[in-house]
Design a protein around this nucleic acid. Structure first.
Lengths: 166, 166
DNA sequence: TTGATATGGGATAACAACAGTCCTATATTA
DNA sequence: TAATATAGGACTGTTGTTATCCCATATCAA
C-alpha cells in the first residue's frame, strides 16, 4: 500500500513543530511539549526523536529545559532523510540495493527477470523525488512547486473506472 | 521502506511474461508455465493471478490448454492498476482516504496537524505517477521516458553523506 | 550535593500484515 | 470419463510494526 509507518507520521509532525517553533525561538523543545501540542503518544514520540537524533536530523539538549531542535534549516531536511532515519532506505524490491552493497542478494530469478532494470530505474526516480521534497515544502503547503512541472502524459483512467463502465 | 510486497513482484513479472508472449501468440499461458519460466513459486503465483483476474487486468481460460492473457494492451495497464489489485489503494497516511470515502477516519490530531494538506497533495502526486507508468514502460526499459522531463532542482546530498563528511 | 528534569540506549511483548500452504469446487478439452 | 487448469477461500508460520518499560547519563537549580 506504500503507507508510511506511524512512526514516520509522528516524525514528520514533530519535525514540523520543531521547524515552526525554531523559526521564532532558538530554545529546544522537549518531547513532552511536542507530545502535548500535537497529541502524539509520548513514549513512541521519544523513541522517534531518538532515532531522528541518531540520524543527525535534529540536535538534542539534555537536562532541565532541554529538548530538541532542528540540526539544519527546514529547506535542507528532506523527506528522504526522514524516511531513511525511521524506516531505512527506500527500496521497491530486493534487487534495488544500495550502490555500494553487493547487490542482488536473495532473488534467484535475477538472470531471466524481465523487469529488473526498469524497476531499479523507477526506484531511482522515487529516491530522487523524496530527496527533493523538503521539510520546508511540507510546511508551506508548497509541495506543488518542486513537482509541478512534471511533464507527463495525461493520467489514465483507473481500471476500476473502466470496469464500472462495463 | 516503501517496498513492494513479494506478491506485487510476482504480479509484475507474470504480467511482463504475458505481455511478451501475447505479442507473438494469442494462446493463454498457464500458471504452471509462468512459474517454470520465471522460477516463481507456483502456489503464490496462482493466488496472484486470481487476484489480477478479479481486478480485470488479465482474462482467464479454464480447462485443458487454459491459462491467462492480458485483458488489455501493455500500454493500457498501469503500475497503479497492479498495485491497487494486489496491495489495495496507495495511501501515504490515514488522512489520504479515497475522494468518495468519509475521509479522516482514525487520526485524532487532524485539526491541529501541520502537514495534512501537504501529505495529501504529495499522495496525489504519487498516485498520478503510478497511474502513468505502464506495463509497456516496464517492459521496454523506457521508464525514463515518461518521467525524464521532471524539471526538479538538483538532488540534495543525503544526510548520511553529510554526516560521513563530519 | 541533591533532586528534578530530559535525553540515550536497549529489552521486551502484543499485535497486524505478509508469505506461503492446502483443500474443494467448477470449467474445459481429449 | 479422466486429465488439466482456474475460482475461491480457509488456514498457519513468519516478519515487521507498535507500544511499553527499564536503567544510564547529562544538565540545571535549589
Amino acid at each position: 500500500m506504500f503507507t508510511l509507518t506511524r512512526k514516520t507520521d509522528y516524525a514528520l509532525v514533530a519535525l514540523a513543530g520543531l521547524a515552526e517553533s525554531g523559526a521564532r525561538n532558538p530554545d529546544p523543545i522537549s518531547a513532552r511539549e511536542l507530545s502535548q501540542r500535537y497529541h502524539l503518544p509520548l513514549p513512541i514520540l521519544m523513541k522517534v526523536l531518538k532515532e531522528l537524533h541518531r540520524a543527525g536530523i535534529i540536535r538534542s539538549q539534555r537536562g532541565v529545559n532541554g529538548g530538541y531542535a532542528l540540526a539544519d534549516s527546514p529547506a535542507d531536511i528532506t523527506l528522504g532523510d526522514v524516511l531513511a532515519a525511521i524506516e531505512g532506505p527506500v527500496r521497491l524490491t530486493a534487487c534495488c540495493e544500495e550502490e555500494d552493497a553487493h547487490a542482488q542478494a536473495g532473488c534467484d530469478l535475477e538472470a531471466r527477470c524481465p523487469i529488473t532494470r526498469s524497476v531499479q530505474r523507477f526506484n531511482g526516480r522515487i529516491n530522487g523525488i523524496i530527496a527533493r521534497v523538503t521539510l520546508a515544502d511540507l510546511l508551506g503547503s508548497e509541495v506543488d512547486v518542486p513537482l509541478h512541472a512534471i511533464g507527463l502524459p495525461p493520467r489514465r483512467r483507473s481500471r476500476a473506472a473502466l470496469n464500472a463502465r462495463a
